[in-house]
Design a protein around this nucleic acid. Structure first.
Lengths: 335, 335
DNA sequence: ATAAGTATTGCAAACGTTTGCATTTATCTC
DNA sequence: GAGATAAATGCAAACGTTTGCAATACTTAT
C-alpha cells in the first residue's frame, strides 16, 4: 500500500527532530520529554513504522529471541505424535510472548550439534530452552559449558551443570504405583523406557513403591509411543497371558496404546487390569474408560523456565526446580 | 570457553586476506578460488565461527526466517489441545528447515493485528505462513493487501486474494457422509461449527451427499473441541434420544469426544451409531474402536506451502492448491 | 541580569556484514 | 616477452539502529 519502507531517519525528518530523539522516544526513554514521546509514538503508529530489528539487534547485541529445541533421540516419531511435548512448547510460547520475547522453533536438523555457536554466536537468539532431556545429554552439556543462557525441561533431580525445570518424576512414579497398590494390585507392569531421562526417574519411583510393599518389578521396555505400547501389550498377552493386574505407563500416549490392546482382548479396565498414565493430555479425559494419570503443571513450568532464562540474561546463577505433580484418579484405576 | 566472540575481520586477519574474501568464501561464492574457499571454510569451522545474522540481515535485507502464525478465533483452547494443528506446524518446521529457513512461532498476542508491519517491516521475517483460516479473515486480508509473501493453510476453494493450501474439505465431507450412507446410515448428524472456514466446506460436502440420497440434514453446531462434542452428544441423547445412526465429526478430537459420550451410554459403535472423523491424528488409530477418518496429507501440504512461499520471495504469483484427501476406514464405521 | 544548575535534544561513531567497483595477479595469444 | 584477457582479491561504502558525550534550552537562585 505505502510506497517504500520508512525508517527512523524519515520519521525524524517528518517531526523535525533528530534520529536519536525518535529512537529514544520509541523506546520510552525518560530522557525525552513526555510530550515529545507521545507525539513521536503517535507519529510512528500513524505511519505504520516498525523498527528494523536487524539493525537494532546489530547495535544492541541483543535479539529478544529464544530458541526452543525439541530434543529428540533419533527419528522416532515421538515429536510429531505426542501431544504432550507440543503442549509444553505451546505454553512456553505463551510465557515468552508475555515477556516480549520471541520463539525460534528448532528441531535438531538445523542446529546440528553446536547449539552455542549456531544460536548464540550467530546472534539468532539470546538463550536456549531445551524441551526434553532425551537419552543423550552431550549437546546440552556442551552448550552449558559454553556458558550460554540455557534452561531444560526435564527431570530436575538429575545432577547437571545447567538448570532443569520439570515435574517430580520420581514422586509421580511412586504415587501412581502406590495408588494402584492401594486398590489391590499385586502384579504391576511398568511400561516405558527406563533408559530415558525423565522416564528412568518414574521407573525408580515405581520400584520404590513396590519394594515398600514387597512386590516384584515387571518392567517392559518399549519406545515411548502408543504404537509400541499397543504391540508390546498384545505380545505380552499372547505369549505370557494375563500375568499382571495393573500397568504404570510412562506417558498417557503409552497408556492409551496399552488400553487399546487390552480392550481388543476383552480385558476389563479397571477390573482385570488397572491403569495409570503420565502427563494428563486432553485424551486422558476423553478416552473410555477415562485414564487416571499424573498431571504435570506445564503452565507453571513454562513460566518458571522463562523466568530462569531471563535471570541468566542478567547474569544470575539459577538452580533446577521441581514442579509439583498431581494424581488425577479417573475410571481406569477405580475398582 | 573461548575468550570473546570472533568476527569476520578476525578470521580475515588470521588468514591474511580481506574480509570480503572471507565473506565470499563462506558464502561459497565462485569468485573465490576453490582452494581459498576450502581453506577459509575450514578455518571458520576450526574457530567455531558463525556469521552474525543481525549484521548480515541488515546488509542483505533478508532474514531467512518465516513467521508461522497459529490463527485462533478467540481464546478457545483449540490450539493447545488439538494435536492436528500442532502436527501441521511440526511438518512446516521440517519443510522450512530443509530449505534453510527458520521458523518464528507466533500466536496472535505478539503480532496483534498488523502482521505485515510487525513481521515484514520490522525485518523479523521474510514471509508469513498462517495456519488455519479461523472465522475472521480480516488480518489475513490486510496482510495480503500489503503485498507481503503469505501462504495460508486452510480451505483452498475459498476465493481469496492470497494462496491457500489445504485439503479438499468439501470432498472429504462428502466422502465421509457417502461412506456412512453406503453402510446403511439414514440419520446422519454433522457435528461441528459450520461457520468456521474449513469446517463449513466439510459441512457443504455432507449436505451434498445427503441430498443425493434424499436424506435430511441434522446439524449440531458446537465448538471444535472434544469437550464440547462430549457434552453435546450427551445432551442430545438425554433430550432427544437416539434419533441418529451415524455422525460425521468435523475433526477427530470432536469424534473422540462424541465417542466417549456414546460409549458411556452403551450405544454400540459402529452398530448403533457409526462414526467418521477428520484429520487422522494418532489417536484415531489408537482409540477403541478405532476411528474411521478423512486423512489429510500434512507432509505434502507443508512442503507445498513452503514452496509457494519461496516462489513469492522470487516475485512469482502463486495460486491456491488442493491436496487430495483419503478416506481411512477403521472399526468405527464398519458394520 | 547573570551564573549555575537541570532538563532536553543533537552529533557522530559504532555494531559486523555484503557487494559494486577498482585493483592486483595469473593466464593466454601471437 | 609484451599486450590483452581472465581470474582472484581488496577497498570502502553502505544497511538502520543505539548511545556516550557535547550542546542547547529552560529554570532557578542570587
Amino acid at each position: 500500500m505505502n510506497n517504500k519502507k520508512i525508517k527512523l531517519a524519515d520519521l525524524a525528518k517528518l517531526a523535525g527532530v533528530s534520529t536519536s530523539t525518535v529512537s529514544r522516544a520509541l523506546n520510552d526513554n525518560p530522557l525525552i520529554k513526555q510530550e515529545t514521546r507521545d507525539k513521536l509514538q503517535q507519529l510512528a503508529k500513524k505511519h505504520n513504522f516498525s523498527l528494523n530489528t536487524a539493525a537494532s539487534r546489530l547495535r544492541t547485541q541483543k535479539t529478544n529471541v529464544v530458541a526452543v529445541i525439541i530434543n529428540l533421540d533419533v527419528q522416532t516419531e515421538q515429536s510429531i505424535s505426542d501431544p504432550f511435548l507440543l503442549k509444553v512448547v505451546s505454553e512456553i510460547n505463551l510465557a515468552l510472548n508475555q515477556q516480549g520475547l520471541e520463539l525460534l522453533l528448532s528441531n535438531s536438523i538445523m542446529a546440528q550439534h553446536d547449539w552455542a555457536n549456531y544460536f548464540i554466536n550467530g546472534r539468532r537468539a539470546d538463550g536456549i530452552i531445551v524441551v526434553g532431556q532425551g537419552k543423550d545429554q552431550r549437546n546440552i552439556e556442551a552448550a552449558a559449558k559454553a556458558g550460554i543462557p540455557l534452561v531444560v525441561w526435564g527431570d530436575p533431580k538429575t545432577t547437571s551443570s545447567y538448570p532443569i525445570v520439570g515435574s517430580d518424576n520420581y514422586l509421580g512414579g511412586m504415587q501412581a504405583t502406590a495408588h494402584l497398590i492401594e486398590h489391590g494390585a499385586k502384579n504391576i507392569v511398568f511400561l516405558g523406557d527406563p533408559e530415558h531421562g525423565e522416564i528412568s526417574e518414574r521407573h525408580r519411583g515405581y520400584a520404590a513403591a513396590l519394594s515398600t510393599h514387597k512386590l516384584e518389578q515387571h518392567v517392559v521396555s518399549i519406545d515411548i509411543t502408543s504404537g509400541s505400547a499397543y504391540q508390546a501389550v498384545n505380545h505380552l498377552l499372547r505369549e505370557k497371558g494375563l500375568y499382571f493386574d495393573a500397568i504404570v505407563a510412562c506417558s498417557d500416549m503409552v497408556a492409551l496404546g496399552a488400553m487399546k490392546a487390552l480392550k481388543e482382548r476383552y480385558v476389563s479396565i479397571p477390573n482385570d487390569v488397572a491403569l495409570v498414565g503420565f502427563d494428563d493430555i486432553a485424551m486422558a479425559d476423553i478416552s473410555h474408560p477415562s485414564l487416571s494419570t499424573i498431571k504435570q503443571n506445564t503452565q507453571l513450568a513454562a513460566s518458571l523456565i522463562v523466568k530462569k532464562l531471563m535471570q541468566q540474561f542478567l547474569g544470575e546463577k539459577v538452580e533446577s526446580q521441581v514442579i509439583d505433580i498431581e494424581l488425577i484418579t479417573r475410571q481406569s484405576s477405580k475398582r
